[in-house]
Simulated assay, not measured.
Amino acid sequence: MQALLDAIAQMDAPTDAGRIFHGRGGLHPGCEQWALDAFPPVWLLTRFQPATDAELALVHNALAARWAQLQPDEPLNWVYQCRQAGQTETRLMAGAVPEPHVVTEHGARYLVHLLKGQNHGLFLDMASGRSWVRAQATGQKVLNLFAYTGAFSVAALQGGAKQVVNVDMSAGAMATGQQNHALNGLQAGASFLAHDIFKTWGKITRSGPYHLIVVDPPSYQKGSFVATKDYLRLMRRLPDLLRPGGRVLLCLNAPELSANFLRDQMQEAAPELEFEQRLPNPVAFADVSDERSLKVLVYRAPELAAPSATAAGR
């Protein structure tokens, strides 16, 4: 775990939420089970196998030493979470976690909850996707599928989106999404629909068509979405939901599925949509294999065909 300790010794005092050490990327042999994130003013250490008390003591000493250099007048706050075989153990190791706990990213504010479950309210690896949406959103009508706590919607509205329709099965996530919008002074422009998209698309279709659709589902969540069987069903709907020239942002965080999985599925389900680009992941999430890392692909619907000279003269 020396690479993790070295990263702690060299880190700066964070202002935005972000990843500090990404062992899962495979660039630090022997540290594949470790991740360290900053959710100021709290550090979150995650291990994907149980850590020993001795290992946790080493991390604590490293964090305490560095924090004493960076912020000698501030307390050290850090949380440890172990994730293994679907089980999660979370412990407050030092200090405290604010309640409410609000973090920032590129000027946006988000509620997070580090002591509850595996999903903390903001997926840090999707920062580049949010930046892209913010840059594309001016004047656009946006559909945000699997919206979770609405971070893409906040980014879109901050980028000048005209309207965002947020859809997620979880009413609790939608409620947090509404709080996130209020935190950012976004009192208009967003709607929130707690809804299972596979039961009916009627409400979603009636609010369209859309200039931009964000699709950021879980890769495997029983009763919600399983990428290997559900992505194709979803993709078949996209052409009817997009305006001519509209874009869709497809996201997939499944190490076992490559970007070609998305490309092949799209070619089968909606061949008229044209692949534009794959967005780069944040540098902090560098991976030894692009195909194991987060996949974020952009597709575009065809533009309306220009009328022929003959038709224009009629």
Rank of each mutant, 00 (worst) to 15 (best):
N119I: 07
H120I: 15
F123Q: 11
D125N: 11
M126L: 14
A127S: 14
A127L: 08
R130Q: 14
W132C: 01
R134F: 07
R134A: 15
Q136E: 15
A137C: 09
A137F: 08
G139E: 11
G139R: 09
K141V: 15
K141T: 15
L143D: 11
N144D: 13
Y148T: 06
G150P: 01
G150E: 05
A151D: 04
S153N: 08
V154S: 00
A155V: 09
L157W: 03
L157T: 04
Q158N: 13
Q158G: 10
Q158C: 11
G159V: 01
G159K: 04
A161G: 05
V164W: 03
V164C: 12
V164M: 06
V164R: 02
N166A: 05
A171E: 15
A171L: 12
A173V: 00
M174S: 12
T176E: 14
Q178C: 04
H181Q: 12
A182R: 14
G185L: 11
A188G: 12
A190D: 01
S191N: 08
F192E: 02
L193P: 04
A194K: 02
D196V: 11
I197W: 06
F198G: 03
K199D: 08
T200L: 04
G202L: 13
G202T: 13
G202I: 10
K203R: 14
K203E: 10
I204E: 05
T205A: 15
T205Y: 12
